[in-house]
Amino acid sequence: MKQVFCRPKSMTKNIFHYCAGCGHSIVHRLIAEVIDELGIRGIAIGVPPAGCAVLAYNYLDIDMIEAQHGRGPATATGVKRVLPDRVVFSYQGDGDLAAIGTAESFHAANRGENITVIFINNAVYGMTGGQMAPTSILGQRTTTSPAGRAALLDGHPVRVSEIFSQLPGTAYIERCMVNSPAAILKTRKAIRKAFQCQIDGRGFSLVEILSPCPTNWKMTPIDSCRWIDEVMCKEFPLGVMKDVPAVEQNEGG
């Protein structure tokens, strides 16, 4: 018999603490698969965030150093600059990346820091109980936008991938989702490309992943997947936003 499915080597045997239907566990697995595939377990260093994924090191069996809320790209910068031949990535939620850590993320991207950012966009603050995030959709009810997010009061959803694509320092940016087997496979490819981008020394790579948070969306996992298709995708269109070939990146030395 041929074995076609097993636990990735870069994953521990711990049972996920995530809620049923949560996107974090899917993405963790994809990262572990890609690390195995690229054979980089021994040189990978991950920087988990403050957020639901704060315990990512319980599942990813690689070197990991915790970051304070939003500071992942700064910590990753420190690691990567000292160890340029390691594969360094931060893992960040939307509050982490697009609110408290906007400066650290934006400037790591702008410096063209040769790191990878895995960005989980679930349109809420998961860990703290479903408060409004910078990525919450207009009209979305959260615990801190009980009447629905209002543009006049709360501003607009932040499109991180589009904004970061404008920065000359970024090399590879793609937005994907994890709400169907096909979408998951696409996300896996994007993560692989992002890591490869770093291995090739092309500069900053980011994969934004629209990810269900059934608990805080107060939906079933199935409805959550549908909501990503019907609502989130409209606000956050999928696709490769940027893929700069190696040559262009090196311009200007």
Partner: peptide, 18 residues
């Protein structure tokens, strides 16, 4: 760095990396 916050967190990463 872009701020003193970023600087100290870069130092954290660099220190951890030896």
């Amino acid at each position: 760095s872009e701020s003193e916050v970023a600087a100290i967190h870069m130092v954290i990463g660099a220190s951890a990396a030896g």
